[in-house]
Computed example of a mutant assay.
Amino acid sequence: MVAPLSAWPWENFGIYKYLLYGPLLAKVLYTRILEGSFKDDWCLHILIICVARSSLHQLWSTYVNMLFLTRNRRINQHGYDFKQIDKEWDWDNFILLQALIASMACYIGPPFIENAPLWNAKGFITILSLHVGISEPLYYWVHRCFHKSYLFNQYHSIHHSSPVLHPFTGATATFLEHLALTPVIGLPIIGSCMMGNGSRITIYGYLLVFDFLRCLGHCNVEVVPHQLFETLPSLRYLLYTPT
């Protein structure tokens, strides 16, 4: 029997799951056609962020598979088999989930992105402080909870079942895991905006840097020279790498 909330609600939709982006696209086109402008920035920015995040993962995947660049720096020299590829095929489910949650948030509360300026220096400090002080420890604690016997066997084991790390491995998880981690990831963004320090650059930047580092940690290619950690041992507490 499948554990509750382990399967994704759109698991049987196949490629048609992308139709769930339809209401966001329809809202953007509606305002463009009837009002003559992209007034509904919230929905438009959600779509742009989704495309940017998907492109970031695809670029990392392309880089990892460029053996002429990465062959000598691969940690695990084995290749990716079809079983792993099939298992990680729907790696982008979390992007769709977070887009749907963000779209619902714009009806529950004020549209943060629409009201946010392009740049706010205080917003950068605020979002960094919230990430280091609250989000990162909370993310680690939730992740550790999924390593306990029941949660690991029923939910988290799929994340550790891939024989060779890949950027898509970091994004592959059950519905419950991403449902629990999404508020943790969004907390710095919401917090900085509610304090009046949010900006569009920090919102885009935070999500893309978060994804970038997760892809880096699961790419199976050592990008950071080990000599750097030998020179600065404390750096390992600030930056994690595939090794």
Rank of each mutant, 00 (worst) to 15 (best):
V2G: 04
P9T: 05
W10T: 01
N12F: 01
I15K: 10
K17L: 01
L25Q: 03
L29S: 14
D40L: 06
D41I: 13
C43D: 08
I46Q: 05
L47T: 03
C50K: 09
A52M: 14
R53N: 07
W60P: 03
S61T: 10
T62K: 15
T62G: 12
M66F: 10
F68W: 15
L69E: 07
I75C: 08
H78L: 12
W89R: 14
I95A: 00
I101Q: 04
A102K: 07
M104G: 09
M104A: 15
I108L: 13
P110R: 15
P111Y: 06
E114R: 15
E114N: 13
A116T: 02
K122P: 00
F124H: 10
I125R: 09
H131P: 00
I134L: 09
E136N: 13
L138R: 07
Y139E: 03
W141K: 15
W141I: 13
R144D: 06
C145M: 15
Y150H: 13
L151V: 06
Q154P: 00
H159N: 09
H160N: 10
S161E: 12
V164I: 11
L165Y: 04
T169F: 04
T172I: 02
A173R: 04
T174C: 14
L176N: 06
E177M: 12
L181P: 00
V184L: 09
L187H: 07
I190N: 03
I190P: 01
S192R: 02
M195N: 13
G198Y: 01
S199V: 00
Y204P: 01
G205W: 04
F210Y: 14
F210K: 10
L213F: 15
C219K: 01
C219M: 10
V221K: 02
H226S: 15
L228C: 10
E230I: 08
T231W: 13
L235K: 08
